[in-house]
Amino acid sequence: MTRYIVIGAGAVGGTLGGKLTQHGIDAVLIARGEHGQALVESGLRLRTPDENLTLPVAAATGPTGVRLRRDDVIVIATKTHQAADALTQWADQPVYDGETVAGTAGELLPVLTMLNGVASELLALRYFRLVYGVCIWLPAVHLEPGEVIARSAPVPGLFHIGRYPASASADTALLEQIKADWTKAGFAIQLPADVMEWKYNKLLSNIVNAIQALVGKNGDFASIVKQARAEASGVLDAAGIAYASREMEAELRAIGPKVRPVPGEPDELGGSSWQSLARGTGNIETDYLNGEIALIARQHGLAAPINTKIASLARIAAATGQRPGDISADELATILGI
C-alpha cells in the first residue's frame, strides 16, 4: 500500500495530508517547530467551507520519527527556499525492505516536488533519482500551529503531476496510483506530458503573490499585477520557454478549486507570500517567483526591472518584519516607476 510522506505540512501539505488521512489513505505529515509538535500531540485541525475537523494524523517533526519503506512516496511541500534543506535531510535516509536496509531514499523512492516556482525539480535531481513535478492550485492558509484552513470546496485543489524531466521514462503505474489515491481524497488530478509547461503557467499566476503580500488591503494593485505579469510573460516568450495558455488554465479551473467562505474567517485571506509576512517568518519565497523572472531575463540578456524590484522589496519586508499593508498600492507603484 502506497504511503505518502508529506514534508512541509503547512497550508498545501497539511491540506493534502489531512484529506488523505480523512479518506483512509496512508500519509505521514512532517512539520517543524510548534506546528509539528501540535500535529504530533493533538492532530490536525482542518477547516474548510463545509467541515471543521480534528484529524488524528500520523505526524513527525523530522526523519528520525519515520522508518521509510519501499512503497513510500516522498512529497516535498515546503516553500521553495526551504526545499534544499528538506531534500538533503531526507535523501540519504535508509529505506527498509522488511528488516533489511535496501538503500537510501534518494536511490529508491520517488519524490514529488509540490512547490511554487520552477526551480525545485532541477534541485531535487541532485538528490533523488526519480523526480515528479507537481503544479499546485490549492487555496489554503496556515497561520496557527496545528491548524490549516482549506478555502475551496467540494474540490480542495487541482494538481498537475508529471515526471521531470519530461524526456525521462515515467512510471505510469505510480502516476495512476497517485491519481487514484488523491482523487479518492477529493482532489482533481491531471497527468500532462510535460508538467513544466503548467509550472511556468503557474509562475505567471504567482507574480501577484509578493504584490498582495506587500500591499494587503491597502489599495488597488490590479494595474501593478497586470504590468508585472506582462513583463514576466514577455521574458518567458523571449527566452523561448513554453507555458500552458491562459485559455487552457481557464478550462481546467472549471473543474478545479472554487473558493468559498470558511466560517469564522474573512472572505479574503492571502496567498503563500502574504502568509509569510502575516506570520512574521523572516523569509519569503519571492526569489523563486518574481526573482525567477529576473534570473531568466539575465540569462538571456534581457531586463525585468519591475519583477526584480518587487523581489527586492519582498526580501526586505520579510527581513525587517513588515506586515501586509505596510505599504500602499500607490506607494508601491511610485517605487516601481509605473
Rank of each mutant, 00 (worst) to 15 (best):
D171Y: 13
T172H: 12
Q177T: 02
I178T: 06
K179T: 00
K179S: 05
A180D: 01
A180G: 02
D181Q: 14
D181I: 12
W182Y: 14
W182K: 06
T183C: 12
T183G: 14
A185V: 00
A185Y: 00
G186F: 08
G186D: 12
F187I: 04
A188E: 15
Q190S: 10
L191F: 05
P192F: 09
P192Q: 13
P192E: 08
A193W: 02
A193I: 01
A193Q: 12
D194H: 12
D194T: 05
D194N: 15
V195P: 09
M196Y: 09
W198A: 00
W198Q: 07
W198D: 02
K199P: 03
Y200Q: 08
N201L: 13
N201P: 08
K202H: 03
K202L: 03
K202W: 06
L203I: 08
L203K: 04
L204F: 04
I211L: 10
A213F: 07
A213N: 01
G216A: 07
N218T: 03
G219R: 05
G219E: 00
G219V: 02
D220N: 13
F221K: 02
A222G: 02
A222S: 14
I224W: 04
V225D: 08
V225I: 08
K226R: 14
Q227K: 06
A228I: 00
R229V: 00
R229E: 05
R229M: 05
A230D: 09
E231T: 10
A232Q: 02
S233I: 12
S233F: 02
S233H: 10
G234M: 06
V235G: 09
L236W: 05
L236M: 06
A239N: 10
G240D: 10
G240N: 11
A242W: 04
Y243K: 09
Y243I: 06
S245T: 15
S245Q: 13
S245V: 04
R246S: 07
E247Y: 02
M248K: 11
M248Q: 15
A250Y: 06
E251G: 06
L252P: 02
L252D: 07
R253N: 13
I255C: 03
I255Y: 04
I255V: 12
P257M: 13
P257H: 05
K258F: 13
K258S: 14
V259F: 07
V259P: 10
P261E: 13
V262P: 12
V262W: 10
V262N: 12
V262C: 11
G264I: 12
G270W: 09
W274G: 13
Q275H: 12
Q275E: 14
S276D: 11
S276R: 04
S276Q: 05
L277F: 04
A278W: 03
A278K: 02
A278Q: 06
R279D: 12
G280K: 09
T281Q: 14
G282F: 08
G282W: 05
I284L: 05
E285P: 04
E285Y: 04
E285M: 06
T286Y: 00
T286L: 00
L289P: 11
N290P: 13
G291R: 01
G291Q: 02
E292W: 03
E292N: 03
E292Q: 07
E292L: 07
I293G: 15
I293A: 13
A294Y: 07
L295Q: 11
L295Y: 15
L295E: 10
A297Q: 01
R298H: 11
H300M: 00
L302K: 02
A303E: 11
A304I: 03
P305T: 00
N307L: 03
